[in-house]
């Protein structure tokens, strides 16, 4: 099975983000970009499928600027991806999900793909637009918020669960299709040290951005950081029972969490 996984470099979770002068972009200076969250789960899913279906290959594809994009591709190779393609982003365009989807679709359409896996949304902007856009651009079915994905060899179909607010839906899907995965239900593995060393020397196919890919149709006007949190309130108490009683009173009478 040929599995393509789309990954995006996102700021490490502990990063303190700053808005760049002008207010329309985030300041990337000193920010560490990593393979994280939904994409990490998507890659783990691809590696599990590869291990269960003999002869499978995992091909990671990322669209973005240097050096962060190369770094997440190498991280994916260290985790077990067989091939990597980097679609180079012209400066300033990497943030738009539809532009990214067009760039990724261009790369994916030129390589074998029985399954295109993505995180259901990116760990930073959480737009969630790339998986459905890829489905449209590649003219194949797409599914989001997927968990418990497995391959049924007797039916030659994927089986999975789609979680919704109302409950769960069980689905089957043919090849090829695009699947956007839920986060952190499959305990992503850690790269082994020798594989990290090997990944540094692994080839990465570079693909220039398609000049015919139109730029974003929308751009954010300004970025704002969340307001600083107001101070926590300490409860004075002598016994745990007293602490609990005071907390319940505050939750009921002041925060009105319950009647």
């Amino acid at each position: 099975m040929e599995i393509v996984v789309c990954i995006k470099p996102v700021p490490e979770a502990e990063t303190r983000l700053r808005v760049a002068p002008g207010g329309q972009t985030l300041d990337a200076e000193g920010v560490k970009f990593v393979l994280a969250g939904y994409d990490e789960s998507a890659l783990e899913q691809a590696l599990l499928l590869k291990e269960s279906v003999p002869g499978s290959k995992v091909h990671v594809v990322s669209y973005g600027p240097p050096p962060r994009t190369e770094e997440v591709l190498r991280a994916a190779i260290a985790l077990g991806a067989d091939l990597a393609t980097w679609v180079e982003a012209p400066a300033g365009t990497a943030g738009d999900p539809i532009v990214a989807a067009r760039a990724l679709a261009g790369a994916i359409s030129s390589v074998p793909h029985d399954l295109v896996l993505c995180g259901k949304q990116a760990g930073d902007d959480e737009a969630g637009l790339v998986p459905p856009a890829l489905g449209e651009l590649l003219s194949i079915p797409d599914f989001g918020s997927v968990a418990e994905l497995r391959w049924d060899p007797s039916l030659a179909r994927f089986k999975f669960l789609r979680s919704t607010d109302a409950g769960g839906e069980r689905w089957e899907a043919p090849t090829p299709c695009v699947i956007g995965l839920q986060q952190a239900w499959n305990d992503p593995r850690t790269a082994k040290l020798p594989n990290i060393l090997k990944s540094r020397k692994a080839p990465i196919a570079k693909r220039p951005a398609d000049p015919s890919n139109p730029g974003p149709r929308s751009v954010p006007t300004t970025f704002e950081l969340p307001p600083p949190r107001t101070g926590a309130r300490m409860i004075e108490y002598k016994t745990p029972e007293e602490a609990a009683q005071k907390l319940v009173r505050i939750l009921r009478e002041e925060a009105k969490v319950f009647p």
Binding site: V34, P67, E71, R74, A75, A78, T190, A191, L193, I196, L197, S199, R200
Partner: peptide, 13 residues
């Protein structure tokens, strides 16, 4: 970059 990857992996573990 290789050394950062090694350090990150050790840190994660």
């Amino acid at each position: 970059a290789e050394q950062e990857s090694l350090r990150d992996m050790a840190r994660k573990f």
